[in-house]
């Protein structure tokens, strides 16, 4: 009690410092939660992939389900030798994984992670509830290519460089249709705030209202995540391991892990924009967390779908990827935009 009163007193005396401390604590909690969930995601992917391919996936480390597999991987990666190749651009090389992870974490701040019902009122769980959060997330998503490009450029390796080139070309081609899709959603929801966008889907999901936009956004999202039909940046058989060819130890671990964090956050974005976020019928007994249950069910379905796509499609060639982006998806996304405006005006 004494501690609590001391804290309130301190908050009243120094509101700015108090806000800063609270913000830092929230950020630390968020970052650690995201890391743990992303770790579970890697494990989930290996298990689901195993199920789809008549294998088991990890099942020896940490009990029957192999839950501790990722713990073992992390310990190993942390204690691996750290090699900086001769001829590498040292500072860029060192900073690249950090930039990659940091830019990814920036997205997490603006995304609502579900909601809880308190006194019959929905309280979204979001760190920074900004008015333009959809635009912000979209902008930061395109920043991610910088980390990968830094890694590829600084490694002094031709395969890394090729991977980096491919990543940037792909990002430029797909950010535009993706952005147009986000704007279409915003037009329908009359807001750029992700919480408002979710609230606007109380009656009808945007995936139903604009199916074209949903498909385009999905494809562009997979591209942004660098998942299977679009994983040209690290095509093992063509350019060894793409931009992280020269990375070893925990630096590689960060780059590897970042992909899964992005996959998690990207799926959350898809759920929020098109699949009605945490909206769903209230479950009677546990009404307090029923939005959370809906949210995580949708998220799980999206994640498994992403894994499923990964194991069942061959890889595009890089020129075909950019062709698809500029020549097909961009015009279609504009069509979707017109449709969204028309429908939005009709119902408004």
């Amino acid at each position: 009690m004494e501690l609590l009163s001391a804290i309130t007193e301190f908050a009243a005396r120094e509101p700015k410092i108090y806000g800063l401390i609270i913000g830092l604590v929230a950020a630390a909690i968020l970052a650690s939660v995201i890391n743990v969930v992303a770790m579970l995601l890697v494990w989930l992917e290996r298990k689901v992939m195993g199920d789809l391919q008549a294998r088991y996936g990890p099942n020896r480390v940490g009990g029957r389900w192999g839950v501790l597999q990722l713990g073992a991987d992390a310990i190993k990666l942390f204690t691996k030798e750290d090699i900086i190749p001769r001829g590498a651009d040292k500072s860029v090389y060192v900073w690249a994984p950090i930039v990659a992870v940091a830019t990814t974490m920036l997205i997490a701040g603006a995304l609502p992670f579900g909601a809880v019902i308190i006194d019959g009122r929905e309280v979204p769980l979001v760190v920074a509830n900004m008015d333009i959060s959809a635009l912000y997330v979209e902008a930061v998503l395109s920043l991610m290519a910088i980390g990968a490009f830094m890694a590829g450029y600084s490694s002094n390796n031709k395969y890394s460089m090729l991977g980096a080139f491919r990543g940037v070309a792909r990002m430029i081609a797909y950010e535009v249709p993706m952005g147009v899709c986000v704007i279409s959603v915003a037009v329908m929801a009359h807001s750029l705030n992700l919480v408002e966008i979710v609230n606007a889907q109380q009656n009808i999901w945007f995936a139903v209202a604009q199916p074209l936009g949903f498909v385009i956004f999905g494809i562009a999202l997979i591209t942004d995540l660098g998942r299977m039909p679009f994983d040209q940046t690290e095509a093992e058989e063509e350019i060894i391991a793409g931009y992280n060819t020269e990375y070893s130890g925990i630096r590689f671990g960060l780059l590897y892990f970042q992909e899964y964090i992005v996959m998690l956050l990207g799926s959350i974005l898809l759920v929020l924009l098109f699949l009605g976020g945490w909206k769903g019928p209230v479950i009677p007994v546990i009404s307090f967390i029923s939005p959370m249950i809906w949210f995580f069910m949708k998220l799980l379905i999206v994640l498994v779908a992403l894994i499923w796509i990964r194991v069942s499609l061959p890889r595009f060639r890089i020129d075909q990827v950019t062709d698809l982006g500029w020549k097909i998806l961009l015009p279609l996304s504009l069509v979707n935009f017109v449709w969204a405006v028309a429908v939005g005006l009709y119902f408004a």
């Binding site: 992939m49 391919q53 008549a54 299977m228 095509a235 058989e237 194991v311 069942s312 499609l313 061959p314």
Partner: peptide
């Protein structure tokens, strides 16, 4: 050949091995 144009996790590749 399928691992080359797709990836080592491409399912038909593994089905063929079965």
């Amino acid at each position: 050949f399928l691992t080359l144009i797709a990836s080592a996790v491409y399912s038909p590749f593994l089905y063929m091995i079965i």
